[in-house]
Amino acid sequence: MSKSAIFTGLVIFIIIALFPFWINFGKTAPVPEPELVGKAKTAKKCVLDKMDMRANHMSLLDEWRDSVVRDANRIYTNTDGKEFAMSLSTGENSCLGCHEDKSKFCDKCHNYASVDPYCWECHTEPKEIK
């Protein structure tokens, strides 16, 4: 293989492999903060502790879905004895009943971390309907 071909290939590889560095050149990427609006702001505590919710909310929602769909069990009692409706978007006592604005809460982190939950393929945000 000719030397010029090798060097061309090498340079192309290095440019492509360094792509994360030059595509972000001169940019900063501030971390978005999920906003608590409405009821969630005053409630102080979610279904579980803050860190637990951050790490495991998706598993919790997964369990809730199975519980509602398979066992018709719609009430979740947390460790404090408080009751919640196992629902993402229906009613005052559901997730979105408290976290009123999906785009200011859910989407903030999901977009930043490139997570595309399929919740919204069936559920709709109550606000979007109006």
């Binding site: 560095f21 972000n24 050149f25 971390v31």
Partner: peptide, 11 residues
């Protein structure tokens, strides 16, 4: 936090 760290590295 991890994405904040990795974005800090590449920027």
């Amino acid at each position: 936090g991890i994405k904040e760290l990795t974005m800090g590295l590449v920027t």
